[in-house]
């Protein structure tokens, strides 16, 4: 299972979205890494990627709204991390289309997405939670 309890930040609204994001990334990776041949799974991969792209943007927007609502001082810096990832995904999708659905490119994308997501949640987002909890705004009484 991709999600680990130590990724939990103690801010219910963010934790719920992170769990959902991890669940979606996990199903994406399971299809990507399955033993089926590429032609058999490429349509499902493309559908999942399209859906995940929308979900990631939505999650980033909600997370940024939450940061603003608690007056998080690292808001601008954190937003730049989101923008950087969205730009990478857009650039990747362009290259992937131009490559006519290259499996090699998609495997590279999957590896980077996995490491980026875990670092982002385990390290970067932890700073938001630390601030919220310090200010008594985490919403769970921690």
């Amino acid at each position: 299972m991709l999600w680990r309890d130590n990724y939990e930040l103690g801010v219910p609204v963010i934790d719920a979205q992170h769990k959902e994001l991890f669940r979606r990334v996990e199903s994406f990776l399971q299809v990507l890494r399955s033993a089926d041949n590429w032609e058999e799974k490429v349509n499902k991969i493309n559908e999942t990627l399209d859906f995940m792209k929308m979900y990631v943007v939505e999650h980033f927007r909600d997370e940024e709204e939450y940061q603003k609502s608690i007056g998080y001082p690292g808001y601008e810096k954190h937003k730049q991390l989101h923008i950087g990832m969205v730009e990478y995904v857009q650039e990747f999708c362009k290259q992937y289309e131009e490559s006519n659905n290259s499996e090699q490119l998609m495997q590279q994308f999957g590896g980077r997405l996995l490491a980026w997501l875990i670092n982002h949640v385990a390290a970067e987002d932890q700073r938001i939670a630390d601030y919220a909890i310090k200010k008594g705004m985490s919403g769970n009484g921690r």
């Binding site: 994308f109 590896g111 490491a115």
Partner: peptide, 15 residues
């Protein structure tokens, strides 16, 4: 070690 693994550890080096 395939493209997925290489990309994941490259991202860790980047981080």
């Amino acid at each position: 070690v395939d493209a997925f693994v290489t990309s994941a550890i490259s991202e860790i080096a980047n981080i």
